[in-house]
Design a protein around this nucleic acid. Structure first.
Lengths: 207, 207
DNA sequence: TCGCTGTTGGACTGCATGGTCCATTACTAG
DNA sequence: CTAGTAATGGACCATGCAGTCCAACAGCGA
């Protein structure tokens, strides 16, 4: 597997993308190698040629690919997030990513929920993906704090985490409804909190 | 299956609970009937005796059972939620339910995420479960609005949805970390929003 | 005690699936 | 043109799993 020609790289990529799609709406266990084979018009030997580790390695490749796509879909705003406009643009990009083209779940979130079906390496990668995502959001929060738009006393990491939670939870609730409003409602609430945090408000101590 | 003796009911319940546990940390596909058989010291014929519909029916029974348990764990507070104290007690009960006894995920949330692996009937039941849960929370919000603790102009259903999203998203993020803080951070933020919503200038008008 | 019905045991079947293997074809560098 | 390597095809194997079937056992009412 050390040497790949262009053709090989393209075939490999085709396999990864088809598998990613299938996993997104059938889950890891619901995606058989034969499904992938049929969809990509490849043969069993090709799957094992490009992914000697078998299904586990293929799933890992899918996780990496999905992680890249997810982050890319949030750029360039994710790296900015220094103004409310940037946050708004970031949010629009995310909603578009999730709902356009019929993607109704977060690839990374789904995979995390299926961690039991994934191997240890994939689980480790997912942990990194979350950390990376959270950190980028937290950096944005800190930029807002530095600019005086968000209470400097707030914990940026926790705030970022709650925004991610709103996204993931909102998506989960959107699925059975087959509607976008649950995610939007969750994001609206997170939004309100972000905006409400300037120094005038004291966070409640509970429970 | 029309007639069940006490003994039969107990066996059936044993099967349901063991399956529920297994599904919670291995997923539907990661739970084989042989696993269940071994864990419950039953035989194949018993599984199909009590659940003629096979695995699908068993999963359905698990969903119903988990739904009951989840709602029960939130009582009596869930039916109250008319004061901040009641909300706090409700939250404590939930966290206890999720984190004590090593349960690190929401059974209903997990099943929803695995809908692709579930049959249509189970999916329908899950939709109902979410509606029921959301409605109870929304009722609580309305009680708080009536009591003048929350802005009467807020949409109770959407607010309830965002609280549910915080729970589910927080749980998802808690899993890879194997820590409780993500859920707590998400709930804290939802909390802040609830508290921040009262009209700051207009006093509540309520008989 | 008898007989009916619910309960239990476990062998067996058919099928889907991950994975192996070997042969063949297509490229590409020299 | 040729040799070597990557790419591909697809038969084949072993296993695990849902589901079937029949036989045996237990409890309870008559």
């Amino acid at each position: 597997m050390a040497e790949l020609t262009d053709k090989g790289r393209r075939t490999r990529q085709r396999i990864v993308e088809a598998t990613a799609l299938r996993i997104l709406d059938a889950g890891i266990d619901g995606t058989s190698l034969d499904d992938v084979r049929a969809e990509t018009l490849t043969s069993k030997s090709q799957l094992f040629h490009y992914f000697p580790g078998g299904k586990a390695e293929l799933v890992r490749a899918v996780a990496v690919w999905e992680g890249e796509q997810l982050l890319a879909a949030q750029e360039p705003h994710l790296s900015d997030l220094s103004t409310w406009e940037s946050w708004a643009a970031w949010r629009r990009g995310l909603e578009e990513y999730y709902f356009d083209r019929g993607r109704w779940a977060c690839p990374i979130g789904s995979l995390t929920a299926q961690m039991a079906a994934a191997d240890a390496e994939t689980a480790a990668f997912l942990r990194e993906a979350w950390t990376s995502w959270r950190t980028r959001l937290a950096d944005g929060v800190r930029r807002m704090q530095a600019a005086g738009h968000i209470d400097p006393g707030a914990d940026a990491e926790r705030l970022a985490t709650s925004v991610l939670a709103a996204i993931q939870g909102g998506l989960l609730l959107s699925q059975p409804e087959r509607a976008t409003w649950p995610l939007e409602a969750a994001l609206d609430t997170a939004w309100t909190t972000l905006h409400a945090l300037p120094p005038t408000t004291t966070p409640p101590a509970e429970p």
